[in-house]
Design a binder for these strands. Structure first.
Lengths: 235, 235
DNA sequence: TATTGGTCAGTGGTCTGACCACCAACCTGT
DNA sequence: ACAGGTTGGTGGTCAGACCACTGACCAATA
């Protein structure tokens, strides 16, 4: 299952091996890796080296480390970009509005693709979420449902790359503005507006109209834009 | 009643410190980090631990390691996402067309923002590149110029997050289809078409018309879409 | 019987000290 | 002045040790 190590950046070789093993199907999400001691012996390297490799893999969200239990392949790769994206945000001294613009680009494309590939099952699922949002009165639950609304659209886009980048940037925004959804949803003037926008998006999905979906989602994003811009005035 | 006791992993604490130091301006691109031994002593941890932190930082492109010389803060953070994006691509078994869709979303938004923020200096720069593309006959140089064309637009968008995600996905596509630009440009029917599209984009920039820029760029992307779809037929 | 609490083996987290490979800057002899 | 070797500092790797945590097993207790 694991080959002997040659020379070069050892931790990169281990990464390659894991990658290959996953692609070949020998390793899958949630699988446990060999224990560090055992693995080190198998590969003929020291435990310290194995650990450096694991650390690198953990950083990009590919491996989850649990003391006393073991190291595991991440259950999904949705968080692979979150950490790097967060770092990039801080180091490049970007503004929140810039992530928001990134998210806008992805949400609109996501909606466009979702409309293109929408299935009755998925549509029903999303429709139910919308209905739940309308009838729900607890703002924090409404916020959670709104999140799921966007998540399901991302799934429906059938594009895992866009989905993951989108989810990462969305969670970064959330981390920066914890209660953005609540704050937006809480505005009594906005509640109905949001529901209306959701409906337009739904209609676009139902009629498989990518352009309409993209435009509707873009307008939906305007709400968040507005909130961000007030939170973070232009320099 | 009792608060949870939580000991963050040391390597994450070190990451935090580096992040803070960069934000505060104590550390900047290209700066050299303390030697591992010295640093370990300063922080009161072992060298192995320091190395695990460095390995994690190297993985996301934040640190460059040079044996016999030292460890350095990366000169730019443009590659922070390239590695994770590549890993994600392989592990999620995505198709090239999906990255292309990701790129399309970013290129169009990038063009839109560029039109919004275009300055005479930047316009002139991009215009010169376009002229160079038209007069150049060597296909590989044309390809290189085309790359710069997109790069400058990304810069002009004045959105570092979009720029970096875009460049990462573009370089991932390039790695997967090495000669895509040449292959596309090489088609005698396409050469004039590309030049024409570039001009439309330029016009949109000049008139600060974001929507027109986005649409023109989207059409420009169709060319690559077309190429990818022929290279990678639908399942 | 059901629950508590201890033991124990296995795991990741960290530390220590050592050796190797590499690089740059400093000699040194010509 | 210069080519070539020496030397000290750096990252790369290794071996072995101890700690903290986990889960499973099991005995003592209510």
């Amino acid at each position: 299952m694991f080959k002997e190590i040659e020379q070069k950046k050892i931790y990169l070789q281990i990464l390659e091996q894991i990658k290959d093993n996953i692609i070949e199907g020998n390793l899958k999400s949630g699988d446990r890796l060999p224990s560090e001691r055992q693995w080190a012996e198998q590969l003929g390297v020291s435990r310290a080296t194995i650990r450096e490799a694991i650390r690198a893999l953990e950083m990009i969200g590919l491996v989850r480390c649990q003391q006393g239990e073991g190291n595991f392949i991440a259950v999904d790769y949705e968080d692979t970009l979150t950490q790097p994206l967060t770092i990039m945000f801080w180091l490049s001294k970007a503004k929140i509005s810039q992530i928001q613009e990134l998210r806008r680009a992805l949400e609109t494309e996501s909606a466009k693709l979702a409309a293109k590939h929408m299935t009755p099952e998925r549509y029903e699922k999303i429709e139910k979420i919308c209905q739940a949002i309308e009838t729900e009165t607890d703002e924090s639950i409404r916020a959670e449902l709104d999140k799921r609304f966007h998540y399901e659209i991302a799934m429906a886009s059938e594009n895992i790359m866009i989905k993951n980048v989108l989810l990462s940037s969305a969670s970064l925004i959330e981390a920066l503005i914890k209660d953005i959804r609540i704050a937006i949803l809480d505005d009594p003037h906005r509640g109905p507006l949001i529901d209306q926008q959701h409906h337009i998006i739904l209609q676009a999905f139902q009629s498989h109209d990518p352009l309409k979906a993209a435009m509707a989602m873009s307008q939906h994003m305007d709400l968040i834009d507005d909130f961000v811009s007030r939170l973070e005035p232009d320099d």
